[in-house]
């Protein structure tokens, strides 16, 4: 199917982009990689008066190393981040999760920030951002720059705290040291949206931050210490899960119970190594 008509604007700077957002607000949508947005436009699931294409804003196409955090600009594609030479060392959890994001061809175009902005409940990058305690950087003419913790940013299924006139300019992944990480997910086909996605960061004593995507409207994170299997099983029962074509809530919970302890164990093992 073909999209409905829209105006197209391609700003060259962030200033221009936020000026456009100030002008159009809810009537505009940001086009970065388009791997989630354009299918929805094509299917006429959404409508927009103006499409603001930020893919050529050079200042957004930057991976910034700020020492204890890595800032990834809004035009940076997933494959660009994947090819960043320091990724494995600085952001091993992101490195572990990126190969699960879509396919080579969609990662070529899809952006890291776009994935966070889209806020799919089982999506990998929002989950990783949440587990690492990362941040989202927003800019608007009215509010200037706002930095929101991942937790405050993603509110529910496809719902975020971004105001209509705000542009996500970057996401920030904290660099964590002296810890091990692991990531796993279950999808029907390779590259599909996950049924559940699981990420863990653990220290040498075995204390872990465990994040789970696909069990509620947004990724959830909990500290797990001690008997991981028991703690995970108890937690999974608290999470409501949801039904869709491919998985029942019970299946989702059982997948987390079955897989999360292994993910935690892997993270602990990596920490030791």
């Amino acid at each position: 199917m073909k999209p409905r008509p829209f105006d197209y604007v391609r700003p060259d700077t962030v200033e221009e982009a936020i000026a456009l957002l100030a002008e159009y607000g809810d009537d505009a949508r940001i086009l970065a990689g388009g791997q989630s947005l354009v299918p929805m436009l094509n299917l006429r699931l959404i409508e927009t008066r103006v499409l603001i294409d930020i893919s050529r804003v050079a200042e957004l196409d930057v991976i910034g190393d700020r020492g204890n955090l890595i800032e990834v600009g809004a035009a940076v594609t997933q494959n660009k981040l994947m090819a960043w030479p320091q990724l494995k060392q600085k952001l091993p959890l992101v490195a572990a999760a990126l190969p699960f994001v879509g396919h080579f061809q969609t990662r070529n175009k899809g952006t890291v920030c776009g994935s966070v902005a889209h806020a799919d409940p089982s999506s990998e990058l929002p989950l990783v951002l949440a587990v690492l305690g990362g941040e989202v950087v927003l800019r608007s003419q009215q509010r200037g720059t706002r930095v929101l913790a991942a937790e405050a940013f993603q509110q529910d299924m496809l719902t975020t705290a971004r105001a209509a006139d705000e542009l996500i300019t970057a996401v920030r992944f904290p660099v964590i040291e002296g810890k091990g990480v692991a990531f796993n997910e279950v999808a029907r086909r390779h590259g599909d949206f996950a049924i559940v996605a699981i990420a863990a960061v653990a220290d040498a004593r075995g204390a872990a931050q465990l994040g789970v995507g696909g069990l509620s409207g947004r990724p959830v994170v909990r500290a797990i210490d001690g008997d991981a299997a028991a703690a995970v099983a108890a937690w999974a029962e608290e999470l409501e899960g949801y039904e869709d074509l491919h998985a029942s809530a019970a299946l989702r919970r059982d997948l987390v119970k079955n897989l999360a302890p292994d993910v935690i164990a892997e993270a602990i093992e990596k920490c030791a190594a």
Binding site: R188, H246, A247, S248, A250, L251
Partner: peptide, 16 residues
């Protein structure tokens, strides 16, 4: 025989 169905079969037999 999807994971959803296999899971349901195992759940029925009490060993998911």
């Amino acid at each position: 025989a999807t994971p959803r169905r296999i899971h349901a079969m195992l759940a029925e037999s009490g060993k998911p």
